[in-house]
Simulated assay, not measured.
Amino acid sequence: MSAVPAIAASHITGLVLAGGRGTRMGGVDKGLEILHGKPLAQHVLERLAPQVCTLAVNANRSQLRYAAFGYPIWHDLAPDFPGPLAGLQCGLAHCTTPFLATAPCDSPLIPYDLVARLAEEMAASGADAAFAVTGAQDKRQRHPVCSLLRKSSLPSLDAFLAAGERKMELWFATLRCVEVDFPDERAFSNINTGLQLQQLEQEQ
C-alpha cells in the first residue's frame, strides 16, 4: 500500500480574514485593536507565517494600515461585506498554490501547528476541506474559519454565493470535509467585544 503524499507548506497560501464589519465590537476594525502592544491581526499573521509559504490579508477597509504589515491585501469580490465566505472566495481566487489556509484576525492564539495538523488529516482522508474542532459531545465546537481548502473548491463556492447563500457551515456541508480535533479550546478564542479583549490582556 503506497504512502499518502503529504501536503507541504510550500503548497499552501495563508489568509488572515479581516474583512468583517466588527458589528459586535461597535463597528471597529477588530484586526487593528491592540493586544499587548500589537494589533490582533499582527498576532495572527506572526503565528500563521511559519506554517505557510506565503501570506495575504482579506480586508475591505483600513487597507493601508493592513498593508503596513507587509503582505498583499485582497478585498472581497462582492460588495457590502457579505461575510466570511466572501473572504474564502477572494483567497481561493487569488492564491496561486493548490491549498489555502485561513484564520480570523480576532483569534490571536491560533496554534502554531494548526496548518500542519489540518494538512495531515486532509491528506490522509483525501478531503476537499479540513477545519478545526474543539471540545466533545454537547460542548463540541466547530471553527470553520480555521480551515484548509483545496483551490479546486472555488467553483463550488462561487455557485453557492451566487445562489444567495452565506452560511459557512452550509457550504462546508456540500464538500468532503474532515474535522480535526484540537485539545486547547482557548487557542480558538474569538475577540468579539472590548471586554473580551481586556480580559485577554490581563490573562497573559
Results as ranks from 00 to 15, higher is better:
Phe99Thr: 01
Thr23Leu: 14
Ile110Ala: 05
Thr54Ile: 10
Ile34Met: 12
Val4Ile: 12
Leu85Lys: 00
Phe81Arg: 06
Pro104Gly: 02
His36Asn: 13
Ala129Lys: 00
Ser62Gly: 11
Val28Asn: 01
Cys146Ser: 07
Gln42Leu: 15
Gln63Arg: 14
Asp113Leu: 12
Ser125His: 02
Ser153Tyr: 00
Leu114Glu: 01
Gly22Ser: 08
Leu148Trp: 03
Arg150Ala: 08
Lys139Gly: 10
Leu17Pro: 00
Ala8Ile: 07
Gln199Gly: 01
Met25Val: 00
Ser152His: 03
His11Ala: 14
Gly19Val: 05
Glu169Asp: 15
His43Thr: 01
Cys177Phe: 03
His75Lys: 15
Thr193Leu: 11
Asn60Ala: 06
Pro5Arg: 12
Leu157Pro: 00
Asp80Gln: 12
Gly27Ser: 08
Ser189Ile: 12
Ala93Gln: 04
Lys38Ala: 10
Ala49Met: 12
His94Glu: 04
Asn60Gly: 10
Gly19Trp: 09
Leu17Phe: 02
Glu120Phe: 05
Cys105Ser: 10
Ala123Gln: 08
Lys151Ala: 15
Leu197Glu: 04
Gly31Leu: 11
Thr97Asn: 10
Arg186Trp: 14
Pro155Val: 04
Ala116Arg: 04
Pro183Asn: 06
Arg24Glu: 03
Gln198Tyr: 07
Asp80Gly: 07
Arg61Thr: 10
Leu45Lys: 03
Arg65His: 06
Gly31Gln: 08
Phe131Gly: 01
Gly91Asn: 07
Ser125Gly: 08
Leu88Met: 15
Phe81Pro: 01
Thr193Lys: 09
Thr23Ile: 10
Val115Glu: 06
Thr54Ala: 13
Gly26Arg: 02
Ala67Thr: 06
Pro111Thr: 09
Gly26Cys: 10
Leu157Thr: 00
Val52Thr: 07
Val28Gly: 01
Pro155Gly: 03
Gln196Arg: 15
Thr134Asp: 13
Leu35Gly: 05
Leu154Gln: 13
Leu85Tyr: 00
Val145Asp: 14
Gln196Leu: 15
Lys151Tyr: 00
Glu46Ala: 14
His94Lys: 12
Thr54Gln: 14
Val4Asn: 04
Leu15Arg: 03
Ala123Glu: 08
Thr23Trp: 11
Ala9Asp: 14
Asp76Val: 04
Gly20Trp: 11
Ala136Lys: 13
Ile73Val: 12
Pro50Tyr: 06
Pro155Asp: 03
Leu170Asp: 15
Gln89Trp: 08
Leu149Ser: 06
Pro50His: 10
Val115Ile: 15
Gln198Trp: 15
Gly135Tyr: 10
Arg186Thr: 12
Leu48Ile: 06
Val180His: 07
Ala49Glu: 01
Leu195Gln: 14
